[in-house]
Design a protein around this nucleic acid. Sequence first.
RNA 1: GGAGCCGUGGUGUAGUCAGGUUAACAUGCCGGCCUGUCAAGCCGGAGAUCGCGGGUUCAACUCCCGUCGGCUCCGCCA
Length: 622
Amino acid sequence: MTTPHLLAKIRCKLFISLLECRADLSGRGGKIVMRLQRTYGCGNINRENIGEKVVLAGWVQGRRDHGGLLFVDLRDRSGLVQLVFDQERQGALFTEAEKLRSEYVLAVRGTVIARSPETLNLKLATGEVEISVEDMELLNSARVPPFYIEDGIDTDENLRLRYRYLDLRRPEMQEMLLLRHRLLMATRRCLDERGFWEIDTPMLTRSTPEGARDYLVPSRVSPGYFYALPQSPQLFKQLLMVGGVERYFQITRCFRDEDLRADRQPEFTQIDMELSFCSRDEIITEVEALLSDLLQSILGQKLETPLPAISYEEAMERYGSDKPDTRYGMELRDISEIAGECNFKVFNQVISSGGAVKGINVQGQGNFSRKELDDLTTLVQSWGTGGLAWMIVTEDGFKTPIAKYFAGEQLDSLRKHMDGQSGDLLLFVADEKVNTQKILGQLRVHLARQLDLVPEGEHHFLWVLDFPLFIYDQEEKRYTSNHHPFTAPCDEDIPLLQTDPLKVRSLAYDLVYNGVEIAGGSIRIHDKEMQETVFKLLGLAQEELDEKFGFLLEAFKYGAPPHGGIAFGLDRLLMLMGGRKSIRDVIPFPKTAAGSCLLTGAPAPVSPGQLKDLHIYTVSRK
RNA sequence: GGAGCCGUGGUGUAGUCAGGUUAACAUGCCGGCCUGUCAAGCCGGAGAUCGCGGGUUCAACUCCCGUCGGCUCCGCCA
């Protein structure tokens, strides 16, 4: 990735601004915490500084003690430079330097000297020079750190999280912090240029039905009442549109009390946007402009726009996912027709009861062992389907336990349908249609990772459009919103609201980046009657509506403009731009899978007095 | 709510399947030697009741049960 270059480019600038701040403070008679005042960043020293007196400050990266000669690597956020102490030249200072240990905090004054040709270190940006130290101020000592402060460490993540402040000293983490900063700044600059106003909205708001579980905050002054932390600023940004803002954005924290994943944290940051008087396509164009700007200004990469787009239905048919990773093939193929005619009961029974049989071609993997195939079967069973049928394509036919159920021409047709070449492994799932798609979609992702078919360093973006407005919740026996209850239906599908709600497509859109959903949004309903219709289809009682959404419906009575918007998951975007595997790697202080913070110990018990103030009684944990 | 994997000196691992002498290796740490290293080198030393609790056994890092913590996935995440 390009981040190291980015860091190098920006180092100098950052350091200058730091010096300017220091200059402002001088002469005010403040308390002196440092006798020496630094003049350069460690990583900024180079050949051009030779002969110059400099003052540096930072942490001891390591030392190499040669007896009468001592090397110390000094590190600050700009990089690393070698200090040299010579017993004969430095005398008493040398004795002090011998006491230095890893991560001691230090300021030094010295002269930049050239290294002799045989002692150059070209691996280091500062490797042509070193600092002959003349004065030293030990600013702090340090305990031995629990892990190495260097890139590429292989340490238990518990430790890194518990000592996050040490983890953050590592260059790759500093790069992450810088990249995050750049992304925030570029977003603000770009959206400002495009006429968006940054407006902040409340963190203490009210719980609404639908959506994720809320984080609740008890009210002290209203006993038994609770605020909720926002899952997103959804309602407020719509109210801002009614308020005549026209173009709004916010970089804001959102909270959802659901189980975590590698790309999911209980609190995360969104780039939230909303526009008035716009169509779906105009919003998509705005988003592409933002994304294009961000990729250009942060990674130096050009984004080809317009980005490709497919419908939800096509995504499910071809990839078994509403966030397909298009960096590799292995697309789903439908063999329902053949399956319905063959004698394999598992297949034809599924077809006769309205299900689907689909397969993927795992090219060149016909050498899977029986055990590996059994493991895959167990895996898909754990995902909630009956089993997995397999066929290995050979020169003259198929190696498979189910060949006997198929007529010769059916096998030929199957091979053609699946594009089977000798040595390919074909895997089939037979189930209710959507389940077939989802299971195979998951299997596709699983195998691509396992077989290392995912090309690194590629950036694939894809819009997914035409989501169904509703999905049917089997457990609750009612419709629920696929996106959220404020999403507008497609104009031409509005009549279906009365007759066949599941067929209604919405004006929602998701942006998928390398198989990860990084943004989602929709054109909103701005009409009070339409909003009430949708709420009613969702089975929300009038009373509940009035209580929980009354303010929105009321606002819509006062001339709501047509509007729509989108929200980016900033952490996910950053994760993908930085080529990191987990969202935790791009969040300064992330939480574990159980939602705990290993650094602060949150969540933690509170005192009985605090609970009393909040009118809260707790029940026993067990 | 469910499934899988992991937990052994400061750190990373081996040993666990098949119970048995002093828990091994690397690195870090401490001390000594060493004037051109940059993963410095050489010599010496300290450092672990094997996540925790219970059980089986003459004997448990090892087997069984429970529990805590972490990671990944399913459900969940408008």
